[in-house]
Design a binder for these strands. Structure first.
Lengths: 336, 336
DNA sequence: CTCTCCCTTCGAAGCGCTTCGCGAAGCGCT
DNA sequence: AGCGCTTCGCGAAGCGCTTCGAAGGGAGAG
């Protein structure tokens, strides 16, 4: 920067003001400075800027878990956030979630980032408390139970379960099982799982049909067993809503039981993606604008960092039900 | 840090030396300093450290494309790299690939990162040239044609195609099609696509069978048409190797042609993942330790940043063929 | 023609940390 | 006792940038 100043015949501070635009600079000077910058192929040194200004122009995104088995939807959040961050001339710091929630705040305390994006939220989340205590800006992908004053973007799983259930009810199903997120997530208080459960109960009651909540199946592994048990003990259950890969286990169980999809049993997935149409039968399910969601989260955080304390922005994003082959009319007579 | 020094009754520089261990400090002083750090809950300011030391302790990872439609294997690279970076007390900067390869170097020039991880490599890659010219440390996931002096981790797609072809040949297939990566990637010189093509030709020649190279199918969209055309014009072709989602289009075409998998036609995917076993029929294919690969890439870069100029490390990682339902003996008589 | 005031520009003081060189002290020797 | 040597703590000079206060000059007003 000193070289720029010398070459342009101006003071160091003038160069800085040309770059930042925080004070007006005459057209004359500005041109000389810009020419010098061009000639010398100068790039401002970010850490120095961060040190002097106190802002790193960086946001941090914490991944759900160290052993990251991200579902595609979460991977797409990351992609969207990356895109928006680059577009906003910010940098995106990607981290695994530390065991100790306290460490979340360190990234800001140490000046690595100005704000944080969190995902995979719990209804009562220690990370949020820490960030609030520290007064650091953050945006959630997902949400806590009490969202007072909190910025978040969330996929509306409650509505998704409702929509799925209504779809199945319209097809004549009167007893539907929900293969919810795995037990450990439910027990930990994973908000989406709680909302899915609540939506099942409420909507089933409204529609006057039966909803069976099955919280336990771990993806694939246990799902087959749980599904087999369901088919055995609940013969009137003719459809299921799944939240993830469990439909794979469900399909196995149905095959073993000699039930055809959708003639004998219908399936709707609340998180469908590209693979949904590759399966046989292709999967009826909710599709989500996850890339958008990730993008919005990053944009909201960047705005917040710039804006001071505007009112909190809370976005609930709806998915779209795409009807494919796995859902159909309830069987006229139950043959089990 | 000044507060720490004061509280511990030592000089600022002593605190620094306690923290960095770059000079010996008496046990007495060290204890006092560490106690003060504990008491004041002090966190070193990273940008300041970066400014003073000239190293940001950060590595940058560039995603393949802005519109990131990462295949699962690539997402897993990112996860692995994130894990290793966090473990090495480094930070991981995630960026979309800029249109201008020159911009890749900016992240280092501006002091945001000390080194770079690149993925989705071309045989002749402008990004690598720029980084070499600038003298910045980098590691590739994938590789260029000339890898002299370059650190990389790559999945061995050549070997994977060979293994797949041998598997099919052993099952009696004498004419196998390769649905390679999309045309635009092949034309751009995407190394994996070139290696897959070469491996097909070489191995087919060795085995004395026929290999048909089909470079064009865009994932899913065109794949059905290309596959239908193949089935029509090449009746002796009884198996295919796919590199991605195209098997979905292939399946459609086979269904339309009334061909059963694997009785009438076999499929092997060189990039199989969890979804491979969820499909009906489940997919025979190569599984890759992608998480490991990402982890290794990050570790190699961190080592390089620490180590100076050790000899380049070049890792070619093999996949494992998992035989499932989609591959079987060649039909005794071709019925088309 | 002088007095303000504003528009530009400059200089200098940090931001929080690393690192170099110096000096003080302690050691084993002669 | 005096020597050189090592060990360890201190002070100060940056790293490259931002930002504040003030100085200089021109224009408009009195």
């Amino acid at each position: 920067m000193a070289q720029i100043a010398e070459r342009a015949g101006v003071a160091l501070s003038t160069v800085s003001y040309v770059l930042s635009g925080k004070r007006s600079v005459s057209e004359e000077m500005r041109k000389r400075v810009l020419a010098a910058i061009e000639d010398l192929d100068y790039r401002p040194h970010r850490p120095a800027r961060a040190l002097a200004s106190g802002a790193s122009h960086t946001i941090a995104l914490f991944l759900p878990s160290p052993q990251w088995r991200l579902v595609p939807v979460q991977q797409t959040f990351v992609a969207g956030a990356t895109e928006a961050t680059s577009a906003g001339d910010f940098a995106l710091l990607l981290s695994t979630s530390p065991a100790d929630p306290e460490e979340i705040t360190h990234v800001v305390a140490r000046g690595r980032a100005d704000g944080v994006i969190l995902m995979e939220m719990l209804a009562h989340d220690a990370r949020v408390e820490r960030l609030q205590q520290a007064g650091y800006p953050f945006v959630l992908i997902g949400r806590t139970e009490d969202t007072t004053g909190i910025d978040f973007v969330d996929l509306d799983f409650g509505a998704a379960v409702r929509t799925s259930l209504v779809h199945l009810a319209e097809l004549g199903h009167t007893c539907v099982a929900l293969f919810n997120f795995p037990c450990d997530q439910l027990d930990a208080g994973y908000t989406s799982a709680l909302l899915a459960r609540d939506a099942l109960e409420e909507t089933a009651a409204e529609l006057g049909i039966r909803g069976i909540h099955l919280p336990c199946p771990h993806p694939v592994d246990e799902a087959t067993a749980v599904a087999a048990e369901l088919l055995r003990t609940e013969p009137e259950c003719t459809a299921a809503i799944t939240t993830g890969w469990q439909f794979s286990g469900l399909l196995s169980a149905l095959r073993d039981a000699g039930l055809h999809v959708p003639d004998g049993f219908s399936i709707v997935s609340v998180i469908a993606s590209q693979y949904a149409e590759m399966l046989t039968p292709s999967l009826t399910g909710i599709e989500w604008p996850a890339f958008e969601a990730g993008r919005l989260a990053a944009e909201m955080l960047i705005e917040r960092l710039a804006g001071g304390h505007a009112p909190p922005r809370q976005l609930l994003i709806g998915g779209e039900l795409v009807v494919r082959e796995s859902s159909g009319p309830a069987p006229a007579a139950i043959t089990r």
